[in-house]
Nucleic acid binder design. Sequence first.
DNA 1: TCAACAGTTTAGAATTATTCTAAAGAGACT
DNA 2: AGTCTCTTTAGAATAATTCTAAACTGTTGA
Lengths: 141, 141
Amino acid sequence: MRKKLRETAHETATMRLRQAGLRPTRQRNELAKLLFRDGHRHLTAEMLHAEAVAEGVKVSLATVYNTLHQFTQAGLLLQVVVDPTRSYFDTNTADHQHFYCEDENSLTDIPGPEISVADLPTPPPGTEIKRVDVVVHVRRH
Amino acid sequence: MRKKLRETAHETATMRLRQAGLRPTRQRNELAKLLFRDGHRHLTAEMLHAEAVAEGVKVSLATVYNTLHQFTQAGLLLQVVVDPTRSYFDTNTADHQHFYCEDENSLTDIPGPEISVADLPTPPPGTEIKRVDVVVHVRRH
DNA sequence: TCAACAGTTTAGAATTATTCTAAAGAGACT
DNA sequence: AGTCTCTTTAGAATAATTCTAAACTGTTGA
C-alpha cells in the first residue's frame, strides 16, 4: 500500500538529515522539503524564509540562516557567490556552472554539458584545489 | 631634465583619470597612485582606506567607496566577487582568473597562461555574455 | 514512560559592510 | 574673481547577516 506523498517527502527529508548527521527537527525537515521538492533551485535566506512563511511553516529567519549553513557544511547545498550583497544557495551540488545576470539578479544553472576547463593551474604552495567556480556573466541586450 | 618620480606618478594618475572622464581631484589622484603604484593588487575599500590613512592621505571611507566604484565603471578596476562578506577590487583589468583561499582570505591572480574555457555556452535568450569569471578555490593542506 | 541532557530554535539586539544625505569644498570655465 | 557643477565628507541610515541568552525539543537510557 502506497503512502501519501506528503509522508514520503517527509521521510525522505528526515533520512537526508540523518545521513548528514543533523538532528531531524521540525524546522529542518520543513526547510529540506521546500528546498528539495522540485528540481534545482537558487535561493537566498530571505527567499526561503518568505517561502516558508507563505506556506505556513513557522520558522525564524535566524534558523533559516543556520540551516542553510549547516546544509552547506553537510554537502547538501552549495553556496554560490555572485552578488556582493547577497548569498545564494544552490540545491544542485554536482559540479556545474552558472549564468548570472546582474540586470535582473538572476542565477541559473548552465544547462547541458559543462564548460570544459582545461589545464588546471598548479595551486599556490601549501594548498590544494577544492573546486573551480565558473560564472558566466550575461547582460540583457 | 628628469622629473622627480613623485611628479611623474602624479601626472600619470592625472592622465589616467582624465582619460577615464573623471575629474582629477586630490583624493582620486592619491588613491590612483596607491592603487596602481606597484604590480597588480586585490583590495577592499577598508584596506585601501587604511593604506591611504597610513600614508597620510586625507580621504574619507565614503570617498574610497565612491572612487572604487567610479574606477570600476571606468574600466580602471575589476570588482571580484569571491567573499560573501567583502568586495575586492583588482587593478588587473585584463582577462584573467583567480585563486581564492578561504582559510586565509587571500585572493591572487592565476599566473601564466590563463585557464582555457572551451565551448562557451549559449546565453539565455535576450542576453549576451559579458565576461566569464573563473575562481579556483583552494584550501591549505 | 519519562527524566535529563545536549542540541536547536527564537526574538531581538548587535555587528558589518556599504550606501545615503545634505552641507561644505574645490575644479573648471568664463 | 565668480559662478556653476561636480566632489568630498561626517555621520546617519540601511541591509544582510550573526550573536545572545533564554525557551524548547529530540534523543537516550533508566
